[in-house]
Design a protein around this nucleic acid. Structure first.
Lengths: 359, 359
DNA sequence: GTGAAAGCGCTAACAA
DNA sequence: TTGTTAGCGCTTTCAC
């Protein structure tokens, strides 16, 4: 055979090619099998121009027989877009990032876009490494997310680079687009729910002061009280950790002055709510009969395990992820958007507030 | 200007190119600025052959000035590998998938590989769509994961396709490589811990029978008892849901026969353990003084919130993800591996078992 | 209706 | 030491 090989002029590109590209079938193989030119194959396989139906059939059959997958890399190189986007998470993939990722991935997959997953874990070095990598991969867009929705420095992407969108994360760059849950509205909704149930002494137990979400949720709580013509003493608005232990501790201080004990508690998150529910049971106070509790986050596994099962606010994070995907697609298509958009939360009613709210 | 444009022969490739590729700087731009050929640029930018240092400097400077990122797509097209892998999750990105993803991503990022994130959510249609997409993107390898480690049909990837590895997920294909936590060993370790603490009537409360993990963990529990010369009545080995409620319920049945109540409980997961801890407190039984509890999963937020904080088994999922990354890289490099490997779990000691184990 | 060929941005072999 | 060029696999005019 060596003789044959040597004799044959170096024209059998097919083989050379296959060896280099790792045994993948290429459009040339299909063309050869269908006995047409590669141009024709391309036309037949894509929603192509005029072509004799018979030829098209033949090409398609050949492609199937070789189980041919066109090489997206080559395609992208030519078309100038890669059909991929990057998802960068500044900190760990946490509990909150997960549904966002899910929503985003779902939205992108529906549009035949692939998502690169990048975790920067609070390390700016790592983050910019990821950004460079994504840029090298010519992603069509980038989504930035985080474990907590507070401000962060903008991503180092030139204006000429791909569009960037911040989800559950925000930045100071006034030209950036940030998508966030409506913490204030959610908290308003929670408080209003208690008001509608007839609660009048509504307290608020929430997380660390330095979270923007804490401030927003408190504002929502206050606004709802005000709207109902109610007010609350300072001692009824407690700031601490995002934990069950803090919930129990706060409850103790709320019930120290038994005469002024609240009949409703709006919690900063579900863990706090869980602590409060447990604390109440241990004090022999009946929830929801004597005290209504609302949580925040709708951390399902926790909310359902709490006794009574928590009525809580859902930030609709998955939908937030989907919306990010949709918007990013628009930006990729050329739309320019900026500013901060907040998506509505939902109230999930379970058992911790008592009888259904009167409309 | 139109005149100029028309007059000029179609030789100014640079401009044409830039327009098509979305304003990205190319190697040609760098070459022009540095006044060298593109071959030289390539050599200078990659760890390249012999080159006059001065020239190299000049090229690098030019590249920096234009903030040039080589197009990985083009590079991959030529080299025949894409420096990307795909991560397919059969079901949702759940609590277990998260650390695995983190570990994998970390490992890959360290090797300058990017990870595509694909979620199939129990939909075989969606899964094969994702596989096709990954194949089209010419990923160098694929990782399959799941919410639960039970068997699944193998991924539809031809033998000639990229290597596949199953993590926290397994398949019947005897040629596949599956990476799993050592459930049996973990449970053995948990039980042994109680034995060393002097517990003699050790019960086991676990999840649904149809989980492979349930069977393995039970086996580990039994083996540890046997190794210690202990035994347990059938009534001390309870199967139910993976929930707190089941934990409380099981506890009730365990303590119905007060004389035969256990002094140690090995739980199938942390939620069950939490239910048991709560149940114990509500019955006025002191844990860990009277009863030791061990959980499983080391779901940190839950384990720490439990009173007493749970001693539990950590499946080291992040490490599992890293290991998957390492192995996949070896497979990409040509190694062939198969079979089921189980990675060791760790015992995380907190407060729910009482005094430190001797030895 | 089909084929030929230029070219997407880059690398590597070969020339100079 | 540097430049030239033939591809990687695909799309897309433009001829025929």
């Amino acid at each position: 055979m060596s003789e044959d090989d040597k004799a044959r002029p170096t024209r059998d590109f097919g083989e050379t090619r296959k060896r280099a590209a790792g045994q993948q079938t290429t459009i040339h193989d299909v063309a050869r099998l269908a006995a047409v030119s590669i141009g024709t194959v391309s036309k037949a396989l894509n929603r192509g121009g005029r072509l004799k139906p018979e030829t098209r059939e033949r090409v398609i059959a050949a492609a199937k027989q070789l189980s041919f997958r066109p090489n997206d890399l080559a395609q992208s190189l030519h078309r100038g877009h890669s059909l991929t986007v990057g998802l960068i998470s500044k900190d760990n993939f946490g509990r909150f990032a997960m549904p966002i990722m899910e929503g985003l991935e779902e939205c992108m997959a529906d549009r035949s876009m692939a998502v690169f997953m990048c975790n920067a874990t609070d390390d700016p070095e790592r983050e910019s490494h990821h950004v460079r990598s994504l840029l090298g991969k010519r992603v069509d867009g980038i989504v930035v997310t985080a474990r907590r929705a507070d401000r962060r420095p903008p991503l180092e992407v030139a204006a000429s680079g791909p569009p960037v969108i911040y989800v559950f994360s925000q930045t100071d760059d006034p030209d950036a687009l940030c998508l966030l849950p409506d913490d204030e509205g959610g908290s308003f909704m929670a408080t209003e729910h208690l008001v509608k149930l007839g609660r009048r002494r509504i307290a608020h137990v929430t997380g660390p002061e330095n979270f923007e979400a804490v401030q927003l949720r408190r504002r929502g709580y206050r606004a709802a009280l005000q709207a109902a013509g109610l007010s609350a003493p300072d001692a009824h608005c407690l700031t601490g950790a995002w934990s069950e232990a803090w919930g129990r501790q706060a409850l103790a201080s709320l019930f120290d002055d038994a005469d002024n004990a609240p009949d409703g508690i709006v919690c900063g998150n579900d863990q706090i709510a869980r602590g409060i529910a447990d604390g109440l049971r241990e004090r022999g106070v009946d929830a929801p009969a004597a005290v209504s509790i609302v949580g925040f986050d709708n951390w399902q596994i926790l909310a359902e395990a709490t006794r009574p099962a928590l009525t809580t606010i859902d930030m609709n994070l998955k939908e937030l992820g989907r919306e990010a995907g949709r918007r990013l697609m628009e930006m990729i298509a050329g739309a320019s958007m900026k500013g901060v958009r907040r998506l509505p939360c939902s109230l999930i009613v379970r058992d911790s507030c008592g009888g259904r709210a009167k409309s």
